[in-house]
Write a protein that binds this DNA or RNA. Structure first.
Lengths: 333, 333
DNA sequence: GATTAAATTGGAACCGCTTCCAATAAAAGA
DNA sequence: TCTTTTATTGGAAGCGGTTCCAATTTAATC
């Protein structure tokens, strides 16, 4: 691997000049530039990113932290950020927090230590205070799916409660009265907020809240199936199940069919997130659209604008959860 | 941010000594070590990864290149590598190749330039020669899902042809004779190999190959649906469809149902990869298991062993595609 | 053609850490 | 106690770039 010194020597100039050519500085004469380019080609020179990063304190890299790398939701998010930035020659460094506070911190520090120019975070275990502190730090941060009261300008999120409300409201609008709810882990704020929205919708329609219709699950298919089994054991009466996310809903579908329930006529099911899953199921899953791709793009654009001074000219609209009606939700006959 | 100099000063020793403490070198007296640790805590010192990387030519990072970040298949792969390495304090840097040769190269160079200690690649556009050249380079490489004749020791792959064979054989074994095939893009070697396997199975059973039963698609749901429509337009007779991957199969399911075909009794469908999708569909999708998670883990272990000298003590078995029978495949009555 | 201003270049310090080699201190052996 | 050996330390030269400042060239003005 050749270095900038060798290029300078071959081109017959100083390293500082080569550096200028490298970084498109003005004030380099055309002929010098050409000599340098020639030398670079000759030597097959590729600048050492690490050295550049150390000297310049920049990296042309954005760090992305998500909970899990498998999982379509985060894949979509990461992909959105990546394509957005890649179009401008910026790269991303992805790492996972695994929903654990210390791993999340570890991941964040790793990204900062790698001189990332900015961070995009989808964290769930770390505290608000920690994040607030982080926002005050040197590295610009964009926080997804979380609303920090002290620094709203760093956050891109959507109203989970409103989404939960929309889902249950849609179910009620189709005549359902006995509505079960399978929530995600209540320690996760989004799960809690969605459930809040559900309760609100019930309340608004004057439907009494019945705790025996609610089960807490993990955000996974298997857990959703188990939760549904619990529901059945309770021998409570319900005509629809609203779920904390699509995976849970998918588990419910399987479990319901295993129990001999015919879908969608005997039971309506609604998910949340509107992931690919919703299109894979049969009947297709009604869900609340969580525009994670658009939000990832928005995060990318925000960074391009604010960190790299690249104007993407696109205005970011506010993100609203919208209910997507599909066959898994049927009116109560 | 404090530097190693400040730590040295506060601890009253040389930077070289601090560096030794940092890297657990032997030959540092207990009391010096303690003084240094004290100073590090006092200053809240965090070593600068970039500087370390520049000086040591290492990074404790493994680069991972996949085609797309969204897509469950690659998510699973990336997740497998990540968890495996994270357990030993190694991080991964993920980037995407988008199935384009120049983006793939760009991504690979990016990873190498970031001083990655090793690379895990799932590339599809780049040439065998380029990869062979890469294998000869300084950075250790693990190549997934591709068999390079010149350097098999770098490759972890499974026999796509055998997988394709197994799928169609299973279909034939259930009495089907008119079997449609919707392939992935033929320019991709895995798509081609799977199709080869299909043909082989037909041949072995003495079923004549009928080109009007074959459609080439992309590896996506929508494309699968379109391909199925093409198949219907041809007015050819078939009782089963074998697909290049699960997404295609999923698209076929939708399209078939839209055409009023009842599943699985009127039409059997088989996928490939055995992704999560297979568990989301109804009927559940028979598929060929592609143990991508295990292969990712194996890649991680290989690197831990060969690059970091960390013995994971687990032997890697050979990877065989296995047919997973599920309800979407029914015997022909 | 001399003078001044502007454009180009070169030099060197610096980014923060590693690592080799020499110097010193401690331990062991005579 | 005095060598000899061994364990600890310090010093300094990199790693490969960036960037500020001063020096040199070139162009512009009179």
């Amino acid at each position: 691997m050749s270095t900038i010194y060798q290029v300078a020597k071959l081109a017959g100039c100083a390293v500082s000049t080569v550096s200028r050519v490298l970084n498109d500085h003005p004030n380099v004469s055309a002929k010098t530039k050409e000599k340098v380019h020639y030398a670079m080609n000759q030597l097959n020179y590729r600048p050492n990113t690490i050295a550049k990063s150390l000297a310049s304190q920049r990296s042309d890299c954005v760090g992305v932290l998500v909970s899990e790398l498998h999982s379509g939701f985060f894949g979509t998010l990461t992909g959105a950020v990546e394509t957005q930035l890649r179009a401008h020659k910026k790269h991303i460094i992805v790492t996972a927090g695994h929903g654990d506070a210390s791993l999340e911190k570890d991941g964040i520090e790793f990204l900062i230590d790698r001189n990332c120019d900015a961070l995009v975070l989808h964290v769930e275990a770390v505290s608000d205070e920690y994040l607030a502190e982080l926002c005050r730090g040197k590295t610009p941060v964009v926080i997804l799916n979380r609303e920090l009261p002290t620094c709203p300008e760093h956050c891109i999120s959507l109203d989970n409660e409103q989404g939960g409300f929309a889902a249950t409201q849609a179910v009620i609008a189709r005549g359902h009265k006995n509505i079960a709810y399978i929530s995600g882990p209540m320690r996760k704020h989004d799960a809690r907020e969605r459930w809040d929205g559900h309760c609100k919708a019930l309340q608004q329609s004057g439907i009494a809240y019945d705790p025996s219709l609610v089960v807490e699950a993990k955000f996974t298919q298997d857990s959703g199936a188990e939760a549904f089994a619990v529901l059945l054991q309770r021998k409570v009466n319900f005509s629809a199940v609203v779920c904390g996310n699509d995976e849970i809903a998918c588990g419910v579908m399987s479990a319901a069919r295993d129990a001999g329930i015919s879908l969608p006529n005997e039971l309506s099911i609604v998910g949340f997130d509107n992931t690919n899953i919703a299109s894979y199921t049969y009947p297709k899953l009604a869900s609340v659209d969580y525009p994670i791709f658009e939000m990832g793009q928005a995060a990318g654009r925000k960074i391009l604008n604010e960190v790299y001074d690249i104007n993407t000219a696109e205005k970011d609209s506010a993100f609203e959860p919208t209910f997507i009606d599909r066959a898994s939700l049927q009116p109560l006959n």
